[in-house]
């Protein structure tokens, strides 16, 4: 029982990380209609900037704003320099351009920081594990869950309750009308892109001490993020949240429990190999099933 609870918590933690990436991606798609393959690069930028500042200053507290600012600024620069010119084009040109950006950013990181992965220390205050009654759990992972949930709350408030959020919602469905009312839609787009980049950067800087800060880290998580966005429904932040938690929990559970289940049915090593294969395909299977039942995802943004 404790094991099941612990694994669910692990799934939630993975889901929260995915949500931070998926929220930006889905907003950018929903509002501007852009497929941004370079979203993973923003995650990498956040992680590298935070790792660099943490290493230079020894302070995790300084690393946080550095990671966020770097990701947001790079994001807005991408919007201003490249993506802005692709709003009216079809998805193919967007795929081509943002694929080019991935190559550029990956190699730029090699030029700036070298090929060796960066060292990131877990902030000493968050190291260690805490006893939750049934089991002990790493403090840092609990923090990620808390930060992720708080960010999700703030994002919902921002979108539902503020003027910016109102413009965002209106801009997604009635672009021309919003513009006719005198809103600078170009500025709005830049801001939203920057916001999405900021969230990706937040995920990246939090992932630093947990994973490995290295070239190509963005692409590893990018595809999974796309799965989340599509399952949730493009353009829907609620959908991204639900999709992220679903993917996180399903993925973790498959890895955690499938080998045990299969071992009851066949010999050990065969079961392990099969379980490994099935759990790798699991989230993609989940996405295929969701799309076949609900072609627009769980929470379609526009009707």
């Amino acid at each position: 029982m404790a094991l099941v609870l612990e694994q669910v918590l692990n799934g939630v933690q993975l889901g929260v990380m995915l949500f931070l990436l998926a929220a930006g991606l889905t907003l950018i798609f929903g509002i501007m209609g852009v497929i941004n393959l370079a979203h993973g690069s923003l995650y990498m930028v956040g992680a590298y900037a935070a790792a660099f500042v943490a290493q230079a200053t020894g302070s995790f507290l300084l690393a946080i704003p550095a990671g966020l600012a770097a990701a947001a600024l790079v994001g807005m620069a991408i919007e201003y320099g490249v993506v802005r010119h692709l709003y009216a084009r079809d998805h193919l040109d967007q795929v081509l351009a943002t694929f080019g950006l991935i190559l550029f950013f990956n190699q730029l990181v090699v030029l700036l920081f070298g090929r060796q992965p960066m060292f990131v220390q877990i902030p000493p205050a968050l190291a260690g594990a805490v006893d939750l009654g049934f089991f002990s759990y790493p403090v840092y992972r609990l923090c990620i869950i808390a930060v992720g949930l708080a960010t999700a709350g703030a994002l919902f408030w921002l979108i539902q309750r503020t003027r910016l959020g109102m413009l965002v919602r209106a801009g997604a469905t009635h672009r021309d009308m919003v513009q006719a009312l005198g809103v600078d839609i170009r500025l709005l787009y830049t801001v939203v892109f920057g916001l999405g980049a900021l969230l990706a950067g937040l995920a990246g800087l939090m992932a630093g001490p947990l994973l490995s800060v290295q070239v190509g880290m963005g692409e590893q998580i990018l595809i999974l993020t796309f799965v989340v966005v599509v399952i949730g429904g493009l353009g829907s932040v609620t959908g991204a949240f639900a999709g992220a938690l679903l993917v996180g929990v399903v993925d973790t559970s498959l890895r955690a429990f499938l080998p045990g289940l299969l071992r009851g049915l066949m010999t050990g090593s065969e079961a392990d190999a099969l379980a490994g294969g099935v759990s790798a395909m699991g989230v993609y299977l989940l996405m295929a099933i969701v799309l076949l039942v609900r072609p627009k995802g769980l929470f379609p943004a526009h009707g």
Binding site: Q7, N10, L211, S253, R255, A280
Partner: peptide, 11 residues
């Protein structure tokens, strides 16, 4: 057997 591109090993 972990996944080829796996980076989170909590499970």
């Amino acid at each position: 057997f972990t996944r080829l591109d796996q980076t989170d090993f909590a499970a």
